[in-house]
């Protein structure tokens, strides 16, 4: 398997940390992983994205020209990346902030009010986790159990008390369906 994921949004929405957690989960499953954050001048303009690859084989280029999955957390990101999603791939968008609709009929679309839900759950910064939950259930890119392990490894100890709540957010996204 090879999963090529682009996560994109505004700086501060946890785009880079989502990419890092995802790559970390892949590492726990002994896969090859790469996570390339955008670091160019566009960061100053407020948008941020990262390219994550999780693969059974050695990873070639860490730069993604096309993706199997796209997570978007603002309109400009959708506009920029919707065309790079491969046929049969998926787009997961935070419908609290993205009101445009992708112009694609050859992909699966998941629209989740992640920011609003995270806010209602008491921590707006978990929106990225909710979206990752959907990515995991829709693609099986990594195992849900490993997500918790990854959080314990990545987060500084003083933030470990937040992990149960983060897992709740993940669970919400994992089980979300529009119906």
């Amino acid at each position: 398997m090879i999963e090529k994921v682009i996560i994109s949004g505004f700086g501060g929405q946890g785009v880079l940390s989502a990419g890092r957690i995802l790559a970390y989960c892949g590492m726990l499953e002994n896969r090859s992983v790469s996570c390339l954050p955008s670091y160019g001048p566009e960061m100053r303009g407020g948008t941020a994205n990262c390219h994550v690859i999780v693969s059974d084989k050695a990873i070639g280029s860490p730069v993604l020209n096309n993706a199997t999955s796209l997570i978007v957390m603002n309109n400009p990101s959708l506009e920029k990346f919707e065309k790079v999603v491969e046929t049969g791939g998926l787009i997961i968008m935070d419908s609290s902030l993205v009101n445009n609709i992708p112009n694609r009929d050859d992909i699966s679309l998941y629209s989740i009010p992640a920011t609003k839900t995270a806010f209602d759950m008491g921590n707006i910064t978990f929106a990225n986790i909710i979206l990752l939950g959907k990515l995991i259930s829709a693609t099986g890119i990594v195992l849900k159990e490993n997500f918790e392990k990854a959080l314990y490894k990545i987060l500084p100890e003083k933030k470990h008390n937040l992990i149960p709540q983060e897992m709740e957010a993940l669970e919400y996204g994992f089980n979300y369906s529009a119906e």
Partner: peptide
């Protein structure tokens, strides 16, 4: 290259 400095891998 800048990529190498910025990217994360195992």
């Amino acid at each position: 290259e800048g990529i190498l400095g910025q990217m994360m891998e195992t």
